[in-house]
């Protein structure tokens, strides 16, 4: 039987959504495969492992170690390699997150294996991925060796949770040593609210927001929708918001169900980060703005007029 490893990802002890998507992706690669969840960290591992099983994994292997509390390349490589050596899988699936992007090439190198990064779809043994900033797509396959892919968050839907599903959770002791990088401090800049890369709805602002205060109506709209707030590079460069909100080629790549672009012109670098969104709404004063070319719905108008009205309309609906 084929065996596939699905890597969970924990952030501050909480399991991230993309973890469940790795299980679903493994099932799409081979429905009858044994899917083994891999959980690395130092707290809540048992809980995360059981959640991975409820979302479709058959069993789980955990590695608990103090040096796995925050992601570092050296510690995670040692832990992941120990699991890979024990399980000798036919394939591996990881999230294309900051940690997954950092770890997967190194594991692929150690395994002398191919790696297909940032996939958004699976068709048999062919993997779909956007190239040229989302302007084109390619299908790739692994010639020989293990099937090794990282998946873009929010593109491969998790399987339905089955609370009654159970499986074996085993722990593996790994002697993690010779760490060459140390994390001294982590400064949280991303807001406490909804995680931008996993958000279902995003309200984003561009240069048209004009100032830091200009983001206020966007936050109010986001609150009503349970959405995350994002921004274009233009808004970040102009100092209207922190770079942690940046969506685009060098910022976050997002695929929400609904993306509301306010005062964003739609430069190619920004589109690279959001054009895969399922539904795009553009609000912009300039009817010629490029963002209207990718938008499903557009309102030509002043965002400071439109956004508050949209917020009111949605609030009224919620009261009903």
């Amino acid at each position: 039987m084929t065996k596939l490893l699905a890597f969970a990802e924990l952030k501050d002890g909480e399991i991230r959504n993309v973890s469940f998507e790795t299980v679903a992706a493994a099932r799409q690669i081979d429905e009858s495969a044994e899917v083994v969840a891999v959980v690395l960290g130092n707290e809540n591992l048992e809980d995360a492992a059981n959640q991975m099983i409820q979302y479709g994994a058959d069993r789980a292997v955990t590695v608990s170690h103090d040096s796995l509390s925050n992601y570092t390349s050296d510690a995670y490589t040692q832990a992941a390699m120990a699991v890979i050596e024990q399980e000798d899988p036919d394939g591996l699936v990881m999230g294309h997150t900051s940690a997954g992007k950092d770890l997967s090439p190194r594991l692929a190198s150690k395994l002398d294996n191919g790696l297909i990064s940032d996939i958004t779809g699976i068709e048999g043994d062919q993997f779909l991925r956007p190239i040229y900033s989302g302007k084109a797509f390619e299908k790739k396959s692994i010639k020989d060796g293990k099937t090794f892919v990282t998946i873009r968050p929010n593109n491969i839907a998790p399987l339905e949770i089955d609370g009654s599903r159970s499986g074996e959770v085993s722990s593996l002791d790994v002697d993690i040593k010779d760490l060459r990088t140390i994390i001294k401090d982590v400064v949280r800049k991303a807001s406490d609210g909804v995680d931008l890369s996993e958000a279902n709805i995003i309200v984003a602002g561009g240069r048209g927001v004009k100032s830091e205060e200009g983001f206020e109506p966007l936050h109010e709209l986001a609150d009503v929708l349970g959405a995350a707030v994002g921004a274009s590079r233009g808004a970040c460069d102009a100092g209207y918001c922190d770079y942690s909100l940046q969506i685009g080629q060098t910022g976050k790549v997002v695929t929400p169900d609904l993306y509301i672009a306010c005062g964003i012109s739609g430069a190619i670098q920004h589109l690279a980060g959001m054009s895969n969104s399922k539904v795009i709404v553009a609000i912009n004063k300039d009817p010629e703005a490029n963002i209207f070319n990718v938008a499903d719905y557009g309102i030509v108008g002043d965002l400071f007029d439109v956004v508050p009205k949209l917020t009111e309309e949605l609030k009224a609906l919620q009261v009903k």
Binding site: L115, I116, Q126, A136, E138, K143, D144, P287, G298
Partner: peptide
């Protein structure tokens, strides 16, 4: 270790609805 099976342009998106 990998091969590119196909490269293609995404289907042309239908023009959005400007309200």
């Amino acid at each position: 270790k990998t091969e590119t099976v196909d490269v293609f342009l995404p289907p042309e998106k239908e023009a959005g609805k400007v309200l």
